[in-house]
Design a binder for these strands. Structure first.
Lengths: 178, 178
DNA sequence: CGATCGGTTGATATGAATCAACGTGCGTGG
DNA sequence: CCACGCACGTTGATTCATATCAACCGATCG
């Protein structure tokens, strides 16, 4: 479990390409289904300073049968991971660059807001454009252009570790998947 | 659970686009994590004649605590669903059209082989090019071109509900994600 | 002070989408 | 039995979105 800071879970290809599967925020499990496995099938990297706690599989399994709360938390994490992957899959398979980036931001905003006080739509946001690129399957250069467009159209500003959302409605229209 | 025939699970967008999340073969659960939820977050459609059995959530939950085999089957299904989504996500985010299609075929081949006797590398294969397109995020036209290329290069033939693999090694090289 | 990193911008190349036409097989209704 | 419509696949011409290549800028850091 990530206790403090930001990290991300990703899958690495032999030739250096990588797909970011999920951005981890405080309270997130690296991956709930891992409880049922012997080995990890992904990598994790810190984005900021982090604090982490580890549990042994056997310990978790024991507490899972003993404590319905633990069981519920694991189940919930499996469910949300599945939903998130479904949405990301749909975004990658069906959406344009603008839609994908908008979708990523819309996905992250409430998760950030659940852990920080947000004033004037200004979200702490430590991702580099490279990370956005690796998450939505674009090049960093193109991410820069799309963000430039968003800025020009007064949808948002993104710099210096902060995201400021100016026109949330329009961003929603672009990235909501509905 | 799908008992006979082929189907697929997908996510539908308002404007008609859809992302195929998984092809279902006999023995597959539609989605294991659904046990922990109240509503479905996906659609399912048959590709061929199918037979299906349903279970009520409460029944499954009961049998899950009672019978460790049932529990194990659910857990395994969660795990493989997660792996499959991870791989598909990586393919969609990082790979070219050829790689994606090769990857899809490589993913399906062992699953088909586990349920059918395969002679001379000839797999039953009821997907239309439209389904391949919706699964890997391409247009049917482009799928046709790529398959044409594969045929020309003597990698495989695909027609009339059957896939014949001619050069498995080369297909592997294209689509293995490693 | 130079080196490095992250981001921006311009020019160009390329992979995939789009538009359109055509062929073929098949089921259906006359 | 035939004519038609329709689903599916193929192919060619063209367009468009995104990648690639390259230069540059500012901030940061040793």
């Amino acid at each position: 479990m990530l206790c403090a800071g930001w990290a991300f879970r990703y899958f690495q290809l032999a030739d250096g390409r990588r797909q970011i599967l999920k951005f981890l925020l405080p309270g997130d499990l690296f991956s709930a289904v891992t409880i049922f496995e012997r080995t990890f099938h992904f990598s994790v990297k810190a984005l900021t300073e982090v604090q982490v706690s580890g549990f042994s599989r056997s310990e978790i399994r024991r507490r899972c049968v003993a404590d319905p709360d633990v069981q519920g938390a694991i189940a919930k994490s499996c469910v949300t991971d599945t939903h998130e992957m479904t949405e990301l899959l749909t975004a990658l398979g069906q959406c344009s660059a603008e839609e994908r980036i908008a979708h990523l931001l819309l996905h992250l905003m409430p998760r950030i807001a659940a852990r920080n006080v947000i004033r004037e739509q200004r979200y702490p946001f430590p991702l580099r454009q490279q990370h956005i690129a690796d998450a939505v399957g674009l090049t960093p250069v193109h991410v820069s252009r799309v963000l430039g467009l968003f800025r020009e159209r007064r949808l948002l500003e993104l710099s210096e570790g902060h995201l400021r959302v100016i026109n949330a409605a329009e961003l929603e229209r672009l990235g909501s998947l509905r």
